[in-house]
Every structure is written in C-alpha cells, then in structure tokens.
Amino acid sequence: MSHPHPAHTHPHHADHEHGKPLIRFDHASFWYPHGPALEDITLEIADGEFVGVIGPNGSGKTTLLRAILGLMPPTRGSLRIFDCACQNLRCYHRARIGYLPQKRAVDPYFPITAREAVLMGRSGAIGLWKRPGKADLEIVRHALEDVGMEDYEDHPLGALSGGQQQRVFIARALAQHPQILLLDEPTTGIDTTTQHTVLDLIQRLHEELHLTIVLVSHDINLIAPLAERLALLKTRLYALGSAKQVLTKEILAQVYGPQILTTDTGHVIVADHHHN
C-alpha cells in the first residue's frame, strides 16, 4: 500500500483551519417510526478532529453518521454541518463529505468494475451531466493505490471478495477528496493484516491531510489508540472525551454490562463467564 496522494493534491488542505466546528449537534433527537434512535445529543466536532464513536448494537452509531450526511433530519433540537442546517444541505456540501457505509451485500451480478465504483465517488465533484476527465481518472487510480487495489481496477466488483469490496468502497470515499470522512465499521470483513493497513491509512489521512474523521466501530480496542476523542453512545451520549476518560470500568459497565473489564494497558475485554 503506497502513501496517500500528496497533500497539495487535496483541495481542503491549503485552507485548513484548526478548531473551527464543522459538525454541531445541539440537543438533537432522531426518531424512527418505531421509536427513538438518538436522544438529546449535544456534540461539536471541530475541523481536523478524529472522533471515534463506540457503543453496543442498536445504540444509534449509524444513525449519527446518517444524520451528519443530512439523510435524517432531527425531530427535536438542531444539527448544523458546515454551518448549514442539515435539512438544507446542498449537493456541494454533501460532495465534501466522504462516507463509507456499513458493509452490506453487493449484487454480485451488477455490471460494474472496481474502477467504475470508485469513479462514482467523483460524481459530486465532477458535477451534473459532465464526464470524468483525466484528472478524475488519476484521482481514482491514486485512491485505488492507497487501498492496495490497483491490480483489481478492471475486475467486476461482484467477483471480488467482501474485504476487497470494502477496500474499493474506502477508495470511493477517498476519491471524493472529502473534508469530512465518515466511516461506518471500515474494518468489518477485512483480514487482520489489511485491518491494520486500512487503519494506518486512515490515520495518515488524518495526520497529513487533516481530514475530519468520524469513525464508528464496535471494536473498542481498535479505535481507542487512533481517535483523539471517543463518543460512547447508547441512544444517548453517555460519555465524550479521551480514551482514558471514557473507557473506565464504571462507564463501560453502565453501557455494556458488568462483564466488561479494562486491563492495566487500557484494553477492554469481556469477562469469560463460560469457563467459570
């Protein structure tokens, strides 16, 4: 896997300003027809920040990302992205947000190659009715190289393994040249070596291009060393802060139950009650 493309090629790098809040949840609640998904969320994510979102299944992690994408307006409170109410997000706002959705089944017979799938990430930047130019194809090639999939660019997407498809979709999010990168369980279905390569890449993107990253993961130990702040969700925002502040025995017990333990090295483990 090569280094990410040079910083100067990224449009948001030059005008980077630290600390300016890009995402602002203000007592925001999000409801599905069957009940609340998130309640009373107050959270600010600054430009260039790396926030990890953790929580048990059904705690609203994916809903948080969908809300940031403007796909789910708040039922109460407010959410502002790029200082614009999320209900009013325009296409050019969305084109600045890269999104890797949770891994889901891809129609194995959909006639699309890996390169074409990554090129779709450029759609917002290219604009309506315009055709991709040489620069766009070059960006796509760089993105595929960044995730180590350049050898598979002409492969049908359906012929790739689940992990390879996931890497192609990461490349699609990168090809968008986003200012905010939203990653929903990016390491699901990827082998251990590639997991670390992908996480290294994400960290490099954050450090070198100062991308604002919101990474959702159920694997606390994988995300804790990377994220500057952790947000612990269970419908409500239970805790927000550094890994040391959030991953305490008391807080984790409240959210996950008493079987969750923390080790001296800061790792979170589940007590093995099967062998007691």
Partner: peptide, 23 residues
C-alpha cells in the same frame, strides 16, 4: 445520455448517490 453517470450511481446505490452529492 446526458445524465448516464447519475442514473448509474442511482441504480447502483441510491443512498450513497444522495450522500455523495448527487440529487
């Protein structure tokens, strides 16, 4: 022909197309 790029993205994954800045 004019909007082939958008229609294909829509056919592949409508939610992702919306999230990527395609109406």
């Amino acid at each position: 022909t004019l909007f082939a790029k958008e229609f294909f993205f829509l056919a592949f994954d409508q939610e992702m197309a919306e999230a990527s800045g395609v109406p």
